[in-house]
């Protein structure tokens, strides 16, 4: 049993707390114990950086230090949390002065950023720690006949320094979906477009245009559903889609939900039935 610290961010607490329960079950099926890093805070959502970059580094150095204190590597599901925290780690590792300054503040809380643990996103964790084979073996209900459009989202692929896969031609998500028994659709027109999540509260129109493009081309490619490893992309597809003038009604899923379902967990418990755009496929 591998133990890893799970960073919840904003997507696995409050009304989304059930998602963590799903995650735990999903990971148990592949022999991973998720330890919730409960004292962690929001990563700042790549928005706090607008106020002050050092604040973003400090918040996330603290988040990392909390995992380090437990002697755990850190697993992050959200693409944005992953990127923001990985950027903070790079800054702390590269800039000695910054590290001293922030560690001075963390001392108050009995914490220290040491730079000793690894930060994983779902994708590289599945690829490098779990292995596609173990995923394949855990499947009890293969997603036979499911045509799933693979959607990575931006922050796991860009920028280069924090990318978890080949940014130009990534393969991990397809591999995982294949392991689940799904038919992967990875050549659709707007697969690289941004999901628009982050512009919903800065320029809503931009979000709706992005959704229109992505969902339109997913539909055109004949997919039943979109799968993304990022809960924010998922929220954009599921929740913001309802803000469109003519929502195309394309269902979407957060990757661990599909995994849970393939691992034999009920649709209700997997979270798949909690979507605004209903997942009809069985």
């Amino acid at each position: 049993m591998v133990k890893v610290g799970f960073y919840q961010g904003c997507c696995f607490q409050g009304q989304d707390a059930h998602m963590f329960e799903t995650m735990k079950k999903t990971f148990k099926a592949i022999d991973v114990e998720l330890v919730l890093l409960e004292e962690t805070t929001c990563c700042g959502g790549n928005t706090i950086d607008e106020e002050n970059r050092k604040l973003s580094y400090a918040i996330n150095a603290r988040n990392i230090a909390l995992a380090e204190a437990k002697g755990l590597d850190m697993l992050i599901s959200c693409n944005t949390c992953y990127m923001v925290i990985a950027k903070a780690k790079r800054a702390m590792d590269k800039n000695k002065k910054l590290r001293e300054e922030i560690n001075n503040l963390l001392k108050e809380e009995g914490l220290e950023y040491r730079g000793t643990n690894r930060i994983y996103h779902l994708l590289d964790f599945f690829r490098d720690v779990v292995g596609y084979d173990r995923i394949r073996k855990a499947v009890k209900r293969p997603l036979k006949g499911w045509k799933v459009a693979a959607y990575y989202g931006c922050h796991v692929l860009y920028p280069r320094e924090t990318a978890v896969d080949n940014s130009d031609n990534p393969s991990s998500l397809q591999e995982i979906l294949k392991a689940l028994g799904a038919k992967v659709i990875d050549e659709y027109e707007n697969k690289d477009a941004c999901c628009g999540y982050h512009s919903f509260y800065t320029d809503k129109n931009m979000t709706l245009k992005k959704l229109d493009k992505i969902l339109g081309s997913v539909r055109e490619a004949g997919a039943d559903i979109i799968a993304t490893p990022c809960p924010l992309c998922f929220k954009s597809f599921d929740i913001y889609q309802t803000n469109m003038e003519n929502p195309p009604g394309v269902p979407s899923s957060f990757l661990p939900e599909l995994m849970a379902y393939a691992f034999g967990i009920s649709k209700e418990e997997s979270g798949l039935s909690h979507h605004l755009i209903k997942v009809e496929k069985d």
């Binding site: 607490q13 106020e51 604040l55 918040i59 603290r62």
Partner: peptide, 21 residues
């Protein structure tokens, strides 16, 4: 949201950085 454990210390760090900047 559920208030985070260690919130008051977290606030100190937060405010300290903002003050410094």
């Amino acid at each position: 949201p559920k208030p985070t454990k260690g919130l008051m210390k977290f606030r100190d760090i937060y405010l300290e950085i903002l003050s410094k900047e």
